[in-house]
């Protein structure tokens, strides 16, 4: 059983938003909603400035509060590690939206169910990369199987120091961030 994960190499991101548009087109995300976004964060004072570019999406947490808080069992963790949603079970109660510490979910108002990044499971099933990864201009977004030591994600995590977002929330994200150069200590 594969264990899917994403690595975001922030050194490579150029804030071009190709991922954001590709995701919206691939997954018909309604106007005004996003499954992924790119955050530009700048610190310091002119001219001593520092910038962080961080593309964010559902973390497909191994300890997912959205799944625990879903009263209907619509949200679930699939065996290959993806946090997914059975749309026909969802009643649009927003419990998951409220419980996600990453603001990764939205309610598809038109259809009345909660939605979020699915790692483009439909593409994975076809043997393709997720839409955002496939179009990522900076090759900043890397997707693959953690169980496979030869996969791009395994290699990236082996070779680089990495973090997760809000580690203290205890969610055990499956999306990892490479900020700095060099190997893990």
């Amino acid at each position: 059983m594969p264990k899917y994960a994403m690595v975001v190499d922030q050194r490579r991101c150029v804030a071009c938003m190709a991922c954001v548009v590709a995701c919206k087109k691939e997954n018909e995300v309604p106007p005004g909603q996003f499954r992924t976004r790119v955050v530009e964060q700048v610190e310091g004072e002119f001219p001593k400035l520092r910038m962080e570019l961080r593309s964010e999406l559902c973390n497909h947490c191994d300890n997912p509060p959205c799944v625990y808080n879903c009263p209907t069992g619509a949200s679930y963790k699939s065996p290959d590690g993806m946090v997914l949603l059975k749309k026909n079970r969802c009643v649009g109660c927003k419990a998951c939206v409220a419980s996600c510490p990453y603001d990764a979910r939205y309610i598809n108002e038109e259809k009345g169910f909660a939605d979020k990044c699915t790692f483009c499971s439909q593409r994975i099933a076809e043997g393709k990369q997720p839409a955002c990864v496939s179009t990522c201009i900076g090759k900043s977004r890397i997707f693959g199987d953690l169980e496979d030591p030869a996969s791009a994600v395994s290699a990236a995590l082996r070779d680089n120091h990495h973090d997760v977002l809000l580690a203290s929330a205890g969610t055990n994200p499956r999306v990892f961030y490479i900020k700095k150069f060099g190997k893990p200590e």
């Binding site: 190709a18 954001v20 548009v21 496939s134 179009t135 990522c136």
Partner: peptide, 19 residues
């Protein structure tokens, strides 16, 4: 989607191309 065979795209399109 970008055409992998094309040297200017290499399988990728920018945000505008995607749109």
């Amino acid at each position: 989607e970008g055409n992998p065979a094309h040297p200017g795209a290499r399988g990728k399109l920018c945000a505008r191309g995607n749109a």
